[in-house]
């Protein structure tokens, strides 16, 4: 028997050193892999910084009061964003009004009312599939259904000469509503799921009906989560360009829409129009428009975070 104090035999020393070098190598590989992961995750953030910096450099030459009050023009120094801002406000207002009740209603149905059957799981699967449909396909849907009032077969829905809603604010808004509905529904479902069952049980226990339970206990508790999801969905809709190009938002609008049936342009469409011109001055205008667009998005996201923090404290979570 060898005791621990005995010097290692030459054979075991060899094994030991092999083990040691092996270990050093393993350690080194581990550090390298860690660095690789760190670098990989920094690439995206680095590109984000470059992008924002690029826009910051170009985006403030034309930033002035005129930019917000003027309509687009062939002369870059007097061209403005007014029509696009008003168009986006109109469209987003209608999107908010339509998508909130439908989205929350659908989420309430799926979480509180629906029996777990084939139809329910079909609706649920369909919602997640719909979220993956390219936005331009929604544009094609909107072009037929809302702009022209037809599904391509049989008669169109017409009032007098006017078939469908035409290339108008309401067509754009309804198209975007269908586009963001899956997002609103899923976010609302998550918020409703997070309301603890004990609250429902207490309400049923004192004899409340299902609707009383839902409307005065579940919904108020879920509201911060729903509002956060709603704002995030709206900020997705603001940046959407493809579907409203499809439904025919104009790219050169020297007026602001006065009603839901008026033609319109929107911020990303105006930006696209400026990008697609060859002159550098228009690219700077596009960058200025992008700055306005990004600041709007940033504000909306900040509001969403604030709502989550402020109302979340008293809420269920």
């Amino acid at each position: 028997m060898r005791s621990a104090n005995d010097p290692p035999t030459s054979q075991s020393r060899l094994v030991l050193s092999e083990y040691q070098t092996n270990n050093v190598l393993r350690h080194l590989k581990g550090r390298l892999f860690y660095l690789l992961c760190l670098l990989g995750s920094l690439v995206g953030i680095l590109l984000l910084v470059t992008l924002l910096n690029d826009i910051r450099q170009d985006g403030f030459h034309y930033m002035s009061k005129h930019f917000f009050t003027n309509f687009p023009s062939r002369k870059p120094e007097i061209a403005g964003f007014h029509g696009a801002i008003m168009g986006t406000l109109w469209v987003m207002g209608i999107v908010a009004i339509t998508s909130f009740p439908i989205g929350v209603g659908a989420a309430l149905y799926l979480e509180e009312y629906a029996i777990k059957n084939k139809l329910t799981s079909l609706i649920q699967t369909n919602i997640s599939n719909l979220a993956g449909v390219p936005s331009i396909v929604f544009g094609i849907l909107g072009l037929q259904l809302f702009v022209r009032g037809t599904i391509g077969y049989g008669p169109a829905i017409c009032i007098g000469e006017q078939c469908g809603f035409g290339r108008s604010v309401i067509s754009g808004a309804l198209t975007l509503t269908l586009l963001i509905l899956p997002i609103v529904i899923v976010a609302s479902q998550e918020a409703i799921k997070a309301v603890p069952p004990s609250i429902r049980e207490a309400s049923y226990g004192v004899g409340a009906t299902r609707w009383q339970t839902v409307s005065s206990h579940v919904l108020p508790q879920a509201m911060p989560g729903i509002m956060t999801g709603m704002i995030l969905a709206l900020s997705r809709a603001i940046g959407e360009t493809a579907p409203i190009i499809m439904i025919g938002a104009l790219t050169f609008v020297a007026f602001r829409p006065e009603g839901p049936l008026d033609p319109f342009t929107a911020m990303p469409i105006q930006v696209l129009n400026w990008i697609s011109r060859p002159q550098a001055a228009f690219h700077e205008l596009a960058a200025t428009g992008i700055v306005v667009l990004l600041i709007t998005l940033l504000t909306m996201n900040a509001i969403a975070v604030l709502i989550r923090i402020r109302l979340g404290q008293s809420g269920a979570r």
Partner: peptide
């Protein structure tokens, strides 16, 4: 509420029908 949820099904059907017909 069911109708609200059903809007999403109608949307899918609308997309498929429109793409197929045209």
């Amino acid at each position: 509420l069911f109708l609200c949820a059903f809007v999403t099904v109608v949307t899918t059907v609308g997309i498929v029908v429109i793409l197929f017909i045209e």
